[in-house]
Design a protein around this nucleic acid. Structure first.
Length: 423
DNA sequence: TCTGGGGTCCTAGGACCC
DNA sequence: TCTGGGGTCCTAGGACCC
């Protein structure tokens, strides 16, 4: 059976989420800022039309945005994650198999439904349903491979006449579109690769599709060879319905203000360890290797620069926040140098083990490990219940370095106190 | 003063083994 | 002049993605 993929992608997702609950902003330019109100990471259509650049540092464009009447939001991940799960829920109702690819994108496997209905019409129905139920508009690209579906989605967004649904099952139509599209737009072709491909005379997606896959593989990598095959309608990337288990977990943040003392760094590292531990337990895994890293600002030429990381192997794999915190603290003591203005710190967990395949050593104490797991379970439950927060004292109560979020919108969908009111 | 966070995969090269 | 051949595992770094 010929495979059929659809890529559903939410338009300007974060900016759209903010606008769903603020109808007064419907036609106004809106941008959403990264953590710490650092850079611009999402723009509404109107904001893009004003020429506002993706990734622009907020402090550099702040005045200009104010003059242009652009509404700015701090990022509100609780809201975006909840809106995302609503959108994905609808897709799961509509399509037989779904791969949630990112917070705002999903691949659908539509193989076999051609016989029952017109693919383009199906796409329009899905789009209308998502719009009606969530207020989020999406673009949909349909094609025989994931890479072509991505390209079709790109076209759906770029050409309004398509009604945001593009069916690219026909190979003549694929070639017509590819001839119009810059090779930089192809999924898997990043900035570095574009330069090299341009030097070889490959400028459009079609140039790449017609290139020799074996030759480009030997010069670059098997990834690019697969991309070429996919552009030619040979599906190399399958739908992945079950997310593969994670291989690493990272928790890190820049500080709202620079830190110079070790005590504050210790608080921050403890907080990151707690978050990483929660993620690890949600994955039902144990970690053996822990890394801690700290660094000063990367942009200021006047301040001395220092960035360093240290890792250690734990005696046995663990998911106990307290054990991880103790190890992290020792690493931090070795890493810390006085006299620097630190901008960011974080932790990384790697080398994971499943609960039941754990290879215990001679001194492994099963009963104390079971107790620790119960304790961590209770802690996670309380923290998720919304009734209060349990955390290690080392995290501190007042964090002067906490993330800057000066333009945060309410948690409209995840907090009773913040429900929008209709009068 | 102020520039995000969290992932994956691939490859080359070194260490080590028989 | 000339110093084997073949394999695995691990790590660091590069490139990409959203």
């Amino acid at each position: 059976m010929k495979p059929v993929f659809a890529l559903v992608d939410c338009n300007n997702f974060y900016a759209s989420c903010e606008r769903v609950f603020r109808p007064d902003l419907r036609d106004r330019p809106v941008v959403v800022l990264s953590n710490n109100d650092g850079c611009i990471i999402a723009r509404s259509k109107e904001a893009k039309a004003l020429g506002i650049k993706m990734g622009a540092p907020f402090f550099q464009v702040r005045e200009q945005l104010a003059e242009q009447g652009v509404v700015c939001f701090s990022s509100n991940y609780a809201l975006y994650a909840d809106m995302s799960s609503r959108v994905m829920g609808i897709l799961e109702q509509e399509a037989p198999r779904v791969e949630i690819y990112s917070i705002d994108e999903a691949f659908l496997d539509l193989s076999g439904i051609e016989g029952c209905c017109d693919l383009t019409e199906f796409g329009r129905q899905v789009k209308a349903k998502v719009d009606q139920c969530t207020g989020i508009t999406v673009g949909i690209g349909i094609a025989p491979t994931k890479t072509l579906a991505k390209l079709a989605n790109h076209a759906a967004k770029r050409y309004p006449a398509t009604g945001s649904v593009v069916n690219l099952m026909d190979s003549a139509r694929q070639r017509r579109l590819m001839a119009l599209v810059d090779v930089a737009e192809v999924w898997g072709v990043g900035r570095r690769l574009v330069k090299k491909l341009n030097q070889r005379g490959i400028f459009t997606a079609l140039d790449l599709a017609d290139a020799n896959p074996k030759m480009l593989r030997s010069e670059y990598s098997v990834v690019l060879e697969r991309t070429i095959q996919e552009l030619n309608g040979w599906s190399c990337l399958a739908l992945e319905q079950v997310p593969p288990t994670k291989q690493q977990i990272v928790a890190s943040r820049s500080f709202g203000e620079r830190i110079t003392d070790q005590a504050s760094l210790r608080q921050a590292i403890t907080m990151h360890i707690s978050r990483a531990g929660e993620k690890l337990r949600a994955e039902q895994q144990l970690a053996k290797v822990l890394q801690v890293f700290i660094r000063t600002g990367a942009f200021n030429e006047h301040d001395p620069y220092y960035a360093n990381a240290l890792s250690c192997e734990l005696p046995t794999p663990t998911d106990d926040t307290r054990v991880l915190q103790k190890a992290a603290d020792e690493l931090l003591s070795k890493l810390y140098r006085a006299g620097y203005r630190y901008a960011k710190a974080g932790v990384m967990l790697t080398d994971f083990y499943q609960y039941n395949t754990l290879q215990a050593d001679l001194f492994y104490d099963a009963s104390s490990h079971a107790k620790a797991q119960t304790l961590m379970g209770v802690m996670d439950q309380i923290n998720q219940s919304g009734r209060g927060q349990l955390y290690l004292a080392a995290q501190g109560h007042e964090q002067h370095w906490a993330m800057k979020r000066e333009r945060l919108s309410p948690a409209y969908t995840t907090d009773w106190q913040s429900l929008p009111l209709v009068r």
